[in-house]
Design a protein around this nucleic acid. Structure first.
Lengths: 121, 121
DNA sequence: CAGAATCCCCTAGGATACTG
DNA sequence: CAGTATCCTAGGGGATTCTG
């Protein structure tokens, strides 16, 4: 599994998944396409700069399709591609893991921080 | 799924998974415990600073257990905990996805970059 | 051997202002 | 409405040096 190329590919997907907004955006598009402004309103906390950058990244990787309707004002819809849809499964599995074990993780952290005081403020 | 708390928990696990070394370290520990120096040699490219930090983070989250044998020179072994082992499945699924679709992703990028020249140097 | 400390750089990401 | 363009900062991560 570690033939270098694979390793690089995996790391670069993981860093995409690990960035602050990509997974959230993808999961928002799960049911139907959404407009830029809908994403912006729904996601809460995202700046429009980061929404743009995140969508560009996802589009570049072929996970999201961008459709412009050239009206005035313009309308732009974003939808998951087939490829993007296949990503949903493993990502949601990981999210489920995170949700299912967050209690254990929180307790582990408390224990660790109690043993090792002053290191984390 | 987006009750805020869950969302935060998920994001923080994803950022762990998305950092440069954590997943690689966890996957190296899949079969048996390893010493610090074994990890350092096997991983290739990691600085000992980042190996230390990564291991501390994993230990803090309860994913990895650290065992010190107080000899001279000291010996320190790292092993996956049960919790860490349960993470293996979803993470490897994601890695498999990344490996399985890296061709598609690469092609999507080429297409995108051809359409939009000069933006990514 | 297994680290802690230090220095330094670079990028992710936020805030704000402007435009077609 | 759906973006660019700027400016700015916190922190991830590398290289190097020191120590029990």
């Amino acid at each position: 599994m570690h033939e270098q190329e694979t390793c690089v590919a995996v790391r670069d997907v993981l860093s995409r998944v690990g960035d602050k907004w990509s997974v959230l955006v993808v999961s928002m598009l799960r049911d139907r396409p959404l407009r830029f402004s809908e994403l912006r309103r729904t996601i809460e906390g995202i700046s429009q700069r980061m929404l743009t950058l995140t969508l560009r990244g996802l589009e570049r990787d072929g996970l999201v399709a961008r459709t412009v309707t050239p009206t005035v004002p313009p309308r732009v819809d974003y939808a998951l591609t087939d490829l993007g849809r296949t990503l949903l499964d493993p990502v949601l599995a990981l999210a489920a893991w995170a949700d299912g074990h967050r209690g254990e993780i929180a307790r582990a952290r408390e224990r660790f921080d109690r043993k090792d005081p002053g290191k984390q403020d």
